[in-house]
């Protein structure tokens, strides 16, 4: 188990060697992720662990990939998706072009969920789904649109609970223990690496989804991310966060109004 001072040392060394700044990550969850890696890779002394990170760039990359959390699901929180389906997307429907950004898309399950939703509403052809993550290896998975077959029962239940009316299995073909989602779903997806901690805005969007990413940041970094989203949203655009996330502790929250109890905010100025 890593002690608090050791965690600070690690943060400083990583910043000095590689320029990556974990300093504004939430310490509580960062500690858990570092502990997990430390144990998984069988280290018994902190200085060995630190030395490996300092001297082995490949291992540093592994650390970055393992520290970021990549837990995701299709149609996670079905109620959220039913609000998207019934209230948010119909509002965007009249636009000639719909731009959506999945910030921190992980292995892409939410992007494919969105594509299914847009397809069913007859809007996929005029939509663009930008999907970004800090972790290059999860983006490779996301691009392929290949997911484990064992997850499909849960995803299908989520899909139906969110108001889906089609046969969920019609969206993929199964082969042994994996499924591949229909290529037409990914035609409008653009995947690229993007770091919410240090990169800037790259386009203007009508809807930004960033669910369960900000929980890993402290308030300062959350404020930076909200500013970035503000810079990247059209006026009256929507920002969707995870079910227990909020912007009320961040600066810049006055530019947004929350849609009832849902974790969806609208940019009003």
């Amino acid at each position: 188990m890593i002690e608090e001072l050791e965690l600070e040392t690690l943060i400083n060394e990583v910043y000095e060697h590689y320029g990556f700044d974990f300093g504004n990550y939430s310490k509580a969850s960062l500690k858990r992720r570092v502990d997990r890696l430390y144990q998984m890779d069988g280290f018994s002394h902190f200085h060995e662990f630190l030395h490996r990170i300092q001297t082995d760039e490949k291992y540093y990359k592994r650390m970055i990939e393992e520290i970021t959390v990549n837990v995701t699901e299709m149609f996670r929180d079905p109620v959220f998706y039913s609000v998207l389906r019934n209230e948010i997307i119909p509002f965007l429907a009249p636009k000639p072009f719909i731009r959506i950004w999945h910030a921190g898309c992980s292995t892409g399950e939410e992007v494919f969920s969105m594509a299914i939703l847009l397809k069913e509403l007859g809007l996929l052809h005029k939509s663009l789904l930008y999907a970004t993550d800090i972790n290059a290896s999860v983006l490779e998975t996301a691009k392929k649109g290949i997911f484990p077959l064992r997850m499909m029962k849960q995803y299908s239940e989520n899909y139906l609970a969110s108001g889906g009316t089609e046969d969920f299995s019609s969206y993929y073909s199964a082969n042994f223990n994996i499924v591949k989602f229909n290529p037409e779903l990914s035609e409008k997806m653009v995947f690229s690496q993007h770091n919410l901690v240090s990169d800037t805005s790259f386009n203007e969007f009508d809807l930004i989804l960033c669910r369960n990413v900000l929980i890993y940041f402290n308030n300062d970094l959350q404020s930076r991310a909200i500013k970035l989203f503000d810079d990247s949203l059209s006026v009256l655009g929507f920002l969707a966060l995870g079910s227990k996330e909020t912007i009320k502790y961040t600066q810049g929250d006055s530019k947004f109004v929350q849609l009832r109890k849902e974790k969806i905010w609208r940019k009003i100025q």
């Binding site: 509580a28 969850s29 992720r33 959390v69 929980i215 227990k244």
Partner: peptide
Amino acid sequence: NIALDGSE
């Protein structure tokens, strides 16, 4: 301060 975590 409480922090939430969505990991495994």
